[in-house]
């Protein structure tokens, strides 16, 4: 039992990332509120970023700033890559939110089911 617990604690970053990824995916796929879908995408993005940054971690490592002392540095490359990733996801979020504003202006709702109903009614007429 304690071996299992230890293994869970050792990989807590990876497990957390995986859990967040699934929560995010679930939110995007099942919720009909468009804003919640965007939140789901953000949670998924965070999961991937957490996973990426966790890979770069080295036990007892310090941030790679050269001070002359003899220490172990963490791998800075994943963090740098993820800075780019964050920018990308922010721009996608902004774009989708602006789309939601437009959808609200034209349909008067941000609920997917409601929008589908309105479209069906229009097609029926």
């Amino acid at each position: 039992m304690s071996a299992l617990l230890e293994s869970v604690l050792d990989h807590i970053n990876y497990l957390g990332a995986m859990a967040l990824f699934v929560i995010g995916l679930h939110t995007v796929v099942t919720h009909s509120n468009l804003i919640k879908k965007i939140m789901g995408i953000n949670i998924m993005g965070t999961a991937v970023f957490l996973f990426f940054v966790a890979i770069g971690n080295v036990t007892d490592g310090v941030p790679p700033i050269i001070t002359g002392e003899d220490v172990i540095y963490i791998n800075p490359l994943p963090s740098v890559l993820i800075l780019t990733g964050i920018v990308v996801v922010v721009s996608i979020t902004v774009y989708s939110l602006s789309l939601v504003v437009r959808i609200y202006e034209t349909h008067g709702t941000v609920d997917q089911k409601e929008i589908a109903r309105l479209n069906d009614e229009e097609a029926g007429l």
Binding site: I38, L99, V100, I103
Partner: peptide, 9 residues
């Protein structure tokens, strides 16, 4: 707008 939103997601 709705088509683009679905595409983006």
């Amino acid at each position: 707008y709705t088509a683009s939103f679905r595409y983006v997601m």
